[in-house]
Computed example of a mutant assay.
Amino acid sequence: MLGYFSIYKSEDETFSGGLLVLNENGIPVSFKYTEPIKPSKIQKIIYGSNLKNYLAFQILSSEELYSPHDVDLILTDDSDLINYIDIDKVIMYIMEVSSDKGFEVKEKEGIIPINQNSSLRFYSSKVLDSLTLKKLKSYIEIFDIFEPFTRLKEALVYICSSKEK
């Protein structure tokens, strides 16, 4: 299973985080999220620029988040998270780049071709084993690996905007 994790910050500095879990065909099997959190002034002062990373760690370190699904890999659209979150799951920041390079992996980063003109560039929190890379390549062949971030962000925006302030 593949997890998509993102943290949304609204204009009024309310945060919500969510994990969308997809099966091997790209079909959602679970969506878990935090209720909107509005940090206090003292939290903003104490955590400073690490506030988002602290919230992400609190969310991702929860065992309840993954049960009953075995998530192989967590993809994120936030490059900061791979450097600040240390959990047993692999967290991977991905982006689409114009590239005609072939498959290339070095330690915790690499490029995987998507089509003739674009590739997936990734940065990982851990060194990837061959099984994880094989699963990632199979997901890329089956569905648009970037599209679920759009759904996840729309859901988090909805969660933050639908709560009474």
Rank of each mutant, 00 (worst) to 15 (best):
A155T: 03
S67I: 09
K134A: 11
K134H: 09
P68T: 01
I91P: 03
Q116F: 15
E96G: 07
K106C: 15
S138C: 08
I111M: 14
Y123M: 12
Y33A: 12
S6C: 11
R121Q: 10
D72V: 09
K38H: 12
N25G: 08
A155Q: 04
P113D: 01
I46P: 04
S119V: 02
K163A: 15
D77G: 12
I159D: 11
K108L: 13
P148L: 00
L75F: 10
F31D: 08
G18A: 11
Y123G: 07
E63K: 04
Y54F: 12
Y54Q: 06
S118F: 15
D129P: 01
D88S: 05
A56K: 03
L120C: 06
F31R: 03
I145C: 13
D80W: 01
K163T: 10
Q116R: 15
D100W: 13
S138R: 02
Y84N: 03
L156V: 01
S61H: 12
F146P: 02
E141F: 09
L128D: 06
S162D: 09
Y139A: 07
N115V: 11
Y54H: 09
I45E: 14
P28M: 06
N53F: 08
T150V: 12
E64A: 13
T14R: 04
D88W: 03
I37Q: 08
V71R: 00
S6A: 12
K165H: 09
S99A: 11
E13K: 07
I94V: 05
K126M: 10
L22F: 07
E164H: 08
K89D: 05
L136V: 06
K106S: 15
I7F: 03
K32L: 15
M92S: 15
S162V: 06
F5V: 02
K32F: 10
H69E: 14
L22K: 02
H69G: 09
L133C: 07
K106T: 10
N117R: 04
K153T: 08
D12M: 00
E24A: 09
Y54D: 14
G48H: 06
H69S: 14
V97Y: 02
